[in-house]
Every structure is written in C-alpha cells, then in structure tokens.
C-alpha cells in the first residue's frame, strides 16, 4: 500500500507536484499516467525518499520510506534515470545492493537469470544497451523479492521484443498478487496491464479511476466504418434517432450511434453487400488526450496531416 497525502514538490519556482493525494491499492497493477512533465517521476522519487516534498507525505505500508527497516524487501523500484555505476558489472552492482540487506549471492544469480542477463552479467554496465539497462534495473527492483514494485516507464527504449517481455513480466507480477505502480504515457500499454489508473497533469490529480471505466467512456460515442457498394441504400436504411452518418468516401460510411452488430443486421435484412465492417473504438489514446488535454505541459504544434505516433516510436 502506497499513500500520497497532499504532496507538493517545488524545484525553485517550478511546481512539479501540486497538493497531490491518492493511494495505490495492494495486490493490483495501478497505472500512473500523465503527459510529459506532469510530475510522475517526481512523485515516484518522493515515495522512494529520494526527493523530499515541500509539504505533505508519502508512505509505503504505513511508513515513510526512510523508516523502512528493510526497504528492498518491501518495495522495489525502477527509476526513470539510470541508477547504476557505468563502470561496474551487473553482477557486482546487484551484489553490492544485496549485501546492504544481507541478501545472498544465490538471489543475485537468480534475478540475473530472471531478466536474461546471464551472458553479460560480468560485463561493465556502461556498455549495456538501453534495453539491457532496463533489464538490469528490473533485476535490482526484484532483488529483495518485494511485494510492491514501482516502475517508472519500464518499456522506455525497449524494442517490441522487450516490450512483450515487460508485459509478460508485469502479468507475472500481477498474477503473484504483487502491488505494481507503473508510470507511462502510453494509454494503450496501460490498458493491457493495469487495472486501476491514476492520471495527473501539471502535478495535480486529474482522475483516480479504473481502466474499465476509461475504456467504456472511450467507446462511448464510438463509430463503425462500413465499406459497401450500396452506400446510398444502407445510409437510408440506417438513418434514425441518434444516428449520425458521414460519407468518408464514395463507398465508405462512418456510422455513429449504432453498434457494428446493429449495422450488420440491417444490411443483412436489406441484402446489402458489405466489404468491410469495422467498429472504431475511440482510441484509448484519444481518451487519454481528452482527460489530460487541458494540462499538457509541452504542446507540440502539429503540421496539417501529421500524425501523432505514440506506439511507433518503440519500433
């Protein structure tokens, strides 16, 4: 259980976290979402006792991180910035961490194998790729076999294979009943792994909700794309209360207010041939944008026709 109570953190004039309160429930994966600069990493550093809040407090299992007698056994963390000496081997890094808590070498070997770094464990961490660095960070987090994990953008810089690995790892952690607090700006990524969501923007709480809730809100007002040679006929057949239809192309309609099943049924009754019938979930990214729209710290001017690619950058 992680609790944040009225935490405010300023860096000089800049308010990074602003009177933020929420709690991370035990036993589930909670996503921590917000645009760049929202204060996610800052909040996590406050929880971990690395940054001291100007006011308010953060506790882990009822205690300030500083007062935990064996922090690595209670909470494991993967920070955003690397927290490893580049000149030291992965093995020695983990060994040094383990020794503080009297954790044995066997567990060190175990976590190295777990994250798949056995072959490079004796090499300098400075030579590691971004993905290997993330794996080593996760090994450190798992070292004390903690019931709670804080992961700041664990998929950061990973290739698709690595992202799949992280996803499976998170599923495994959740299946074991661990508490996972996970930050990201990728809503789609969150929807696959998280159950609960904390959304912040400009350091303030925007939403404390479930993923299911956001998904259902997102699909509300969703539409169906229909490609058919009988576009005109179908259009007339579908029109009714609360139904909006736009012609996207000569043979392509966007229908809102009806489900794809309803559209399909109408077409079948009229004997209209359909070439495509695609339900358009208002994407989770769009839902996320709507949630955080007013609180985006760094707006990007999009050129006409340019697309925001969020998933593509991982490839």
């Amino acid at each position: 259980m992680i609790e944040i109570e009225h935490v405010t953190k300023r860096y000089g004039e800049k308010v990074a976290v602003d009177d933020l309160s929420f709690s991370v429930k035990p036993g589930i994966v909670t996503g921590f979402l917000g645009p760049n600069g929202a204060g996610k990493s800052t909040t996590m550093r406050v929880i971990l006792g690395l940054d001291r809040p100007n006011s308010g407090r953060a506790t882990v299992n009822g205690k300030a991180y500083r007062d935990l007698p064996a922090p690595l056994h209670e909470i494991g963390a993967l920070l955003e910035a690397r927290a490893i000496h580049t000149g030291r081997s992965a093995y020695n890094h983990l060994l040094a961490m383990a020794q503080t808590h009297g954790i044995g070498r066997r567990r060190v070997d175990e976590v190295i194998e777990l994250v798949g770094l056995t072959d490079v464990a004796r090499k300098r961490a400075g030579g590691f790729s971004l993905g290997m660095g993330q794996r080593l960070g996760i090994a450190s987090a798992l070292l004390g076999d903690p019931a709670t994990l804080i992961l700041d953008e664990p998929a950061n810089g990973l290739d698709p294979e690595g992202i799949r690995w992280i996803r499976n790892l998170l599923k495994g952690l959740a299946a074991e009943g661990r508490t996972v607090f996970l930050s990201s700006h990728l809503m789609a990524e969150m929807a696959q792994t998280a159950e609960h969501l904390i959304v912040i923007g400009r350091g303030r709480l925007i939403a404390d909700t479930t993923v299911a809730e956001v998904v259902s809100q997102a699909s509300h007002g969703a539409s169906v794309m229909v490609r058919t040679p009988g576009a005109g006929e179908l259009r007339e057949a579908l029109l009714g209360d609360g139904v909006r239809i736009t012609s996207v192309e000569r043979d392509l309609l966007e229908v809102s207010g009806l489900t794809s099943a309803e559209v399909g049924a109408v077409a079948a009754r009229r004997g209209i041939v359909l070439h495509e019938l695609v339900p358009q979930m208002a994407s989770l990214e769009q839902a996320f944008m709507r949630l955080t729209g007013d609180s985006v710290e760094y707006h990007t001017e999009l050129l006409a026709g340019e697309q925001l690619e969020t998933v593509g950058e991982a490839a």
Partner: peptide, 25 residues
C-alpha cells in the same frame, strides 16, 4: 536467452530469511 526467462516464477527461491539493512551490510 531472454525469451526463455519469461515463464519463471519471480519469487525468490532462496530460503534465507529476510534481513534488514545494517551498518555491517
């Protein structure tokens, strides 16, 4: 080597008891 690591249990299999941080450590 990484793909094969996926299905392992994440729990520690070491039987050692959980210590606390000590100055000696």
């Amino acid at each position: 080597a990484i793909a094969s690591a996926e299905q392992r249990p994440l729990r520690s299999t070491s039987q050692t008891q959980r210590g606390r941080v000590t100055q000696l450590g």
